[in-house]
Design a protein around this nucleic acid. Structure first.
Length: 746
DNA sequence: GAGCACTGC
């Protein structure tokens, strides 16, 4: 295969010519955890891990003194001491994450209370805590600890606590004033995760309220690598900004001379140009958008390399994306054999989550696959979109971690200039129902006027509130109030529809089963279907399949997995993703504990799947669809939107009259994914005086559907009563938009 | 008869 050459133009933008590093020192961070998987099983992460004394402690002490932040220590502490809120801008490698919490502790600014440091990712919280604990010469979980989901490695002695941002937000529900903490450090604030964004408002309010109530003051430190400093400062009442120098090698940026229509191909061409000209053992990182592109690029690269073997040094090609099984992900961390060049073809997972040593060249396609949420249609879709300038910068920086490097951008300099400065914060492109429920549990009812740094659109808030209203979690007052049911729902770390389903399960006496199903639904797919072994995978799966829907299949899988005690070979043979299945069992354990705390009786319905199906139908009543006689498709009952069963569903061939679905995904068509059928249900939709009613008693083929006025509802309820008498084995479930659960809960 | 980026509680 002959690859045409692609010539590049040298980037003129000085912002992307990184400053030469003056001090050559090890990175400030702890030794990076090598894989995503190693943290997935992090419960084994040692409390007694690397605890070490003597030589190692003194060596670490020396290293600390050499960090770029060290000379600034006195001045920094002095400033922070005087300020209520400070913004700290530090480039990669400044040492801010590991050192500032220790400086605060050493200088007594913590006032003997806890310093909380939030991180967007679990791995970061765990590894940084381990590193800092080592630097103090202490055992992890003593002075320095961490707290992430499923794991709390802290003690009464802990004064420096690394935690995920989501964890601190959860804690805030129980204690909105955050009284345990004297300092809250929000690290990696530039990433603008939805949790960090909500925390901005929560800590700001806590600080103000503590001042008003005369409680020990709360110091806020926002740490970021952003260039958009003013935005942060303005939000925190013009808080002063402290700058720290980082450590980064220069990276030469090259632009494509003209726009590239096929960036996958262009990336392969560029790779071989680098490969021809540069010495081997200088590794290359290619950024593409998803599994399909990556697999196609990997194949092309391998083909070309094979054809040209003998004419150039060999290549070691590694794909890298989150859905890739653990063992294959691990390959990217293997040392490159001598004489080889390693090429990693990755999604944006390599931008922040995974750091790979030895990268000297980055090839950036300039695109990313992003979830786009439309609050009006309630539709999620994944779209390939252009990256932001900040993201481009982040990718470029990946070439200069250990030595000077180069970044080849597969777009023109003009295209770069036209990119958005920053990625749209997550809070502005996500379904907010879960966040709104959490805010209301925090006591903030007027969510529309919450002090957001960047406000989500009113439509998305209104749509979230309305969904919570449908579920009976909030009242339809203005502003809405949390119902007792809503308060219970907020205790679960789940999508509100799933929390509601759990709370409904006690009425159907099938909580054990629902917990299993909900756990599987709330993690990434447990099914693994490689393109090459599709038939094999489907054959292996046949024993779990159920004509009653995907949920029952998940229950079968969960039970079988438990039956073999999570055996890895079993997972492999049955094309089950063991990593995600393990997470599901941990989720289930957590959900079970929350149920116990709420004193919900945990009962099993055994093999009575109809109870399970009724419960699911009741929880997902707003996600129901009815088959269309004429077209073989379905329409949603709530919005009359034409939809189809996704071919990956076990119900794809069955076409039941009524289905409930987990989510709508728009690709070539609008697909419902993860479906279930209801043995018999009544759904009531709508508001005010008009209800849209559907009764589907499939076993007896009774179908009735109408729009009725409230006055007629009496008649309807009489009818329902008779139906129930006639067919006692079929529950007739009714749902109104109003808060029928309140009375029962109070 | 279709393909889904990444986090987190």
């Amino acid at each position: 295969m002959l690859l045409g050459a692609l010539t590049y133009v040298l980037g003129e933008n000085p912002a992307f010519l990184y400053r030469e590093n003056r001090m050559r020192m090890p990175d400030d961070g702890p030794p990076k955890k090598k894989t995503k998987m190693s943290e997935a099983g992090s419960s084994s992460h040692g409390r007694n891990g690397n605890y070490d004394t003597g030589v190692s402690y003194h060596r670490l002490k020396e290293e600390r003194r050499k960090l770029p932040i060290f000379p600034a220590k006195g001045k920094l502490i002095n400033q922070i001491q005087r300020l209520d809120t400070a913004i700290v801008i530090g480039e990669t490698g400044s040492g801010k994450t590991t050192q500032i919490p220790q400086y605060l502790y050493e200088s007594g600014i913590h006032r003997n209370a806890i310093v909380a440091v939030t991180q967007p990712r679990r791995v970061a919280a765990i590894t940084v805590a381990q590193r800092v604990s080592d630097e103090r010469g202490q055992q992890l979980g003593q002075l320095v600890g961490y707290c992430v989901r499923f794991e709390d490695v802290t003690s009464e002695n802990t004064k420096i606590k690394y935690m995920t941002d989501g964890m601190l937000l959860r804690e805030a529900i129980l204690d909105p004033l955050m009284k345990r903490y004297s300092v809250v450090i929000l690290d990696e604030a530039h990433e603008r995760t939805i949790h960090t964004d909500v925390l901005f408002g929560v800590v700001k309010a806590a600080q103000r309220h503590r001042k008003m109530k005369g409680i020990r003051p709360l110091k806020i430190i926002v740490m970021s690598a952003t260039m958009d400093v003013d935005h942060f400062s303005n939000y925190f009442n013009k808080a002063p900004v402290l700058y720290l120098e980082g450590r980064q090698y220069p990276v030469q940026v090259y632009y494509a001379p003209e726009p590239q229509s096929d960036y996958v191909f262009a990336s392969v061409v560029t790779l071989f140009q680098i490969h021809k000209e540069e010495p081997p053992n200088q590794d290359v990182l290619i950024f593409l958008t998803g599994q399909e592109e990556i697999e196609s690029a990997v194949k092309t690269i391998r083909d070309v390399a094979r054809d040209a073997s003998g004419q150039m040094p060999p290549l070691m090609v590694c794909p890298l994306y989150a859905a890739l099984p653990s063992q294959q992900q691990l390959k990217v961390f293997k040392a490159t054999p001598s004489g080889y060049r390693k090429v990693i073809v990755a999604t944006n997972i390599a931008e922040t989550s995974v750091t790979i040593q030895g990268i000297r060249f980055v090839i950036d396609a300039g695109m990313v696959k992003a979830k786009v949420f439309n609050p009006l249609s309630g539709l999620d879709l994944l779209k390939v979109v252009r990256i932001s300038k900040a993201q481009g910068l982040q990718r470029t920086g990946r070439a200069g971690r250990e030595a000077p490097g180069a970044c080849y951008r597969l777009y023109t300099e003009q295209e770069f200039e036209e990119l958005k400065a920053n990625t749209v914060p997550e809070i502005q492109r996500t379904n907010l129902s879960s966040v709104v429920l959490q805010l209301m549990a925090l006591g903030i009812s007027d969510v529309v006027n919450f002090d957001f740094m960047d406000k989500p659109s009113t439509e998305s808030i209104v749509s979230a509130v309305s969904q919570l209203e449908d579920l009976g979690a909030v009242t339809n007052d203005k502003p809405p109030r949390l119902t007792p049911l809503g308060r219970k729902m907020a205790a679960f770390p789940l999508d509100p529809r799933l929390s509601k389903t759990i709370l409904l399960a006690k009425d159907f006496h099938c909580l054990e089963e629902i917990l299993s199903i909900v756990s599987v639904l709330s993690v990434d797919s447990v099914l693994f279907t490689p393109q090459s072994k599709r038939e094999e995978a489907l054959a292996a799966r046949a024993k779990f399949v159920s004509s009653e829907g995907d949920h029952v299949m998940f229950l079968n899988i969960y039970r079988a997995y438990k039956g073999v005690k999570g055996n890895k070979d079993w997972c492999h043979e049955n094309f089950i993703n063991g990593r995600n299945m393990k997470t599901a069992t941990e989720v289930r354990q957590q959900l079970r504990q929350i149920c116990e705390r709420q004193e919900i009786p945990i009962q099993s319905c055994g093999n009575d799947t109809s109870a399970i199906r009724r419960c699911l139908a009741a929880g997902f009543f707003m996600n129901a669809a009815e088959i269309q006689k004429e077209s073989s498709g379905y329409v949603t009952l709530s919005t009359k939107k034409p939809v189809h069963i996704h071919p990956s569903s076990v119900l794809f061939q069955c076409k039941p009259s009524y289905v409930i679905y987990n989510e709508l995904v728009k690709t070539t068509k609008c697909y419902m994914s993860l479906l279930g059928t209801s043995p018999s249900s009544l759904f009531i939709f709508g508001s005010d005086f008009i209800f849209n009613v559907v009764i589907a008693v499939e076993h007896y083929s009774i179908l009735w559907k109408a729009n009725i006025a409230l006055g007629e509802s009496l008649l309807l309820f009489c009818l329902l009563y008779f139906l129930q008498q006639l067919y006692p084995e079929n529950d007739v479930i009714q749902y109104e938009k109003e808060k029928q659960f309140d009375e029962r809960d109070i």
